[in-house]
Simulated assay, not measured.
Amino acid sequence: MKKIVSVILMLVLCMSFITGCQNDSNSNSTNNASTEDESATTNKIAINVAALKGPTAIGMVQIMKNAKAGTALNDYEFTIAGTADEFTTDLIKGDVQIAAIPCNLAANLYNKSAGKVKIIGINTLGVLYILQTGDSIKSIQDLKGKTIYTTGKGTTPEYTLDYLLKSAGLNPEKDVTIEFKSEATEVAAMLATSPNAIAMLPQPYATTVMMQNQNIKIALDVTEQWEKYAGKNSTVVTGVVAVNSDFADKNPQAVQQFIKEYKESVLYVNANVDSAAQLVEDFDIFKATVAKRAIPYCNITFIDGSEMKTKVSTYLKVIFDQNPASIGGVMPADDFYK
């Protein structure tokens, strides 16, 4: 009997020891998981991201949504501005770490700041369209003798239009009259009041104008015309994603995480136009009704690496040949491409 009691006591002690070990193991696992979660949270980096109202901002709306929900890979704070002047100084200084800006402006900032701004991707290809109320414009040559209303003097639209006119054998200073307006609404007003008016506008402003006046329609896709004259190896690069160089050098993982999220956001926007359009309105970029119709015409993308370098350098060379000052006087060096 004593032997049986001894055996039972031994079993009880063993069971207690095993249970204790398991509890310690579970406790350690829980603590490790907790530590990993805390580490994942504390490893998030605060990043200020700026973009312009329009396609350069539309492509990142899923990141904006995730950032608001706290599920983005980093702690992003977004600024959506009417003009790039509102944040370019901060981008050079590093107070804004990442920004979606016009391609030629990125080259300008790179040259102006001695390389403090570089690019990590193309986020928007051609978004310019020539609009008309009649049906007389079927080619660039048909613009001869016409008045063209547009925005963007001293920026990509002006240099793009000049290139197309010259490529078609027209003199921008003699064969056409180009009237620059400060706002797309002014251009829309000219189209509404003049039955034969012609305009060149970017998306989604072109869509907005057509929605307001059903007599206005697309006459020419500027990107198609560009590729007709420059060849398929060259295309219009409207927007790029720029990064502050010091930030990129010190935080390579955070930059790669942003690129990953941007690519996913672009896929989402192009595949889910309705829900993406609602996000565009939620973040006060454009009305959902406009975004829904405009997104298919915005050429929203994300291209990085060697393909980015080829497309951007080819495009900038054409712009440089039109006006060297448009990109800061010299072609960017290889380190412009991060």
Rank of each mutant, 00 (worst) to 15 (best):
A33S: 12
D37C: 09
E261G: 04
E264S: 15
K228N: 15
I122S: 11
G134F: 14
L316E: 00
V236E: 13
A81H: 04
Y76D: 11
T155R: 14
K232R: 11
M64N: 03
M190R: 12
K181I: 03
D75Y: 07
T235F: 09
N66T: 08
T79E: 15
A69Y: 04
A219C: 14
N323A: 14
V280W: 04
I130Q: 03
V176S: 08
L279M: 12
L164W: 15
D221I: 04
A242M: 12
T238W: 14
T193D: 05
A81L: 11
S34D: 07
T88G: 13
K287C: 08
A57F: 01
T185P: 01
T150L: 10
G239A: 05
L170V: 05
M60I: 02
N111W: 02
D75G: 05
V273M: 01
W226S: 00
N213I: 08
S39C: 07
Y315H: 09
S245Y: 11
L109W: 15
Y149A: 10
I285D: 12
D24L: 15
Q132H: 14
A33F: 00
A199H: 05
S167H: 00
Q203L: 07
P55K: 12
I137N: 04
T41P: 06
K309H: 00
S245L: 09
G328H: 00
S39I: 09
K144D: 08
S245F: 13
A106M: 03
Q322W: 13
I80F: 07
N31Q: 08
L161E: 01
S167Y: 01
D246L: 11
I319S: 11
A197K: 05
D142K: 15
Q257S: 09
K174M: 05
A72G: 01
T238S: 14
V243W: 06
G94Q: 05
T150D: 06
K287V: 04
A188E: 00
E224W: 02
M210Q: 15
T301R: 15
A168S: 10
S29K: 13
M60V: 08
I319M: 14
G94H: 05
P172A: 00
D95A: 10
Y205F: 12
N171W: 00
D142V: 07
I148Q: 03
E281Q: 08
L73S: 13
K44E: 05
E264W: 07
A50H: 02
G145H: 11
A84S: 14
V266I: 15
K118N: 10
I18W: 00
D175F: 10
M60D: 01
T89Y: 01
P202Y: 13
P202V: 01
C298G: 10
L11W: 07
S136R: 11
C14Y: 11
E179W: 02
K311Q: 09
